[in-house]
Amino acid sequence: MLLEKLSNARGVSGDEGAVRALITAHLRKYVDEYRIDALGNVLALKRASRRGASRVPFKLLIAAHMDEVGLLVTHIDRDGALQFEKIGGIDDRVLPAQSVLVGKHATPGVIGLKPRHLTTASERAQVVPADALRIDIGATSREDALRVVAPGAYATFATTFRAFGDNCVRGKALDDRAGCALLCELARENFPFDLYAAFTTQEEIGLRGARVAGHALAPDAALVLEATICDDSPKSREQSPTTRLGAGPALTLADGGLLAHKALARLLAETAQEHKLPFQYKQPLVGGTDAGALHRARAGVPSAVISIPARYIHSPAAVISLDDFGNALKLARAALPRIPDLDF
């Protein structure tokens, strides 16, 4: 299963090579061409099928980001412990007692905390900041550690993808490998427009891959496939769950970086209704996606987002529903051919 391979692949922002290799191996079978740009984006083109193609085909950019949040080794202490920096928005509270894989050779390491026996109540009331934590790979000294790891090495959570519950899956990096998997599926099909599939880099550190992809490809419209916040656990105050797991793909009306193109967002919602596909609106004005950069490319690109609700994103184990995944794919398949007919 492609989603499983993608989730297990290791690709922290700035180090997406392994994910890129998986994706290009898949694309070679289906697209007309692709290239890797200066940021490491995969920019693929699947030309319009003859059916329905006008003389100048419509250019639709669909983007999903390859990178995941993770850790970067910044320095090795004399005793061989690895100092690290968080890449992307990771909550310090999920780091203690995690296992990680470090560097090209996926060297296992653990993040330890002072034992409960030796801590005071006031220490236990404090979050230990990431810069006070270390990765322990079992090295005896700096020199010993340098045999397998150098500063600049990236570490990912050592989580293995697995299915569980009612058609749910658990894994790291589902934000946004779920989107990558959707886009890989879409790239197999034929559409009446030129499909530019952009697998982007460095989304988690500032939408950087998307920014240059949007400029280079200059599309007529853009759609972003994302995994988004899902906060549907019970809470003390009645407030928005942002999205609900299993309630269908989530459509963005507005988020922290985008006011969705109205006609495009409406087309997605109407298509879902017509095809009797479940869908939901994501809580407006929270979060952000590559669309924040894409819609500002050049003289502006009409943009929208389809998201898959993902619990516990930016942690070692996110959870998504394969029903949502399947419905997102159905929705995209049904809606995409209608996009070129919109009056932009």
Partner: peptide, 9 residues
Amino acid sequence: QVTGDGIPT
């Protein structure tokens, strides 16, 4: 790095 089509930096 993110100017124009992207620049190796």
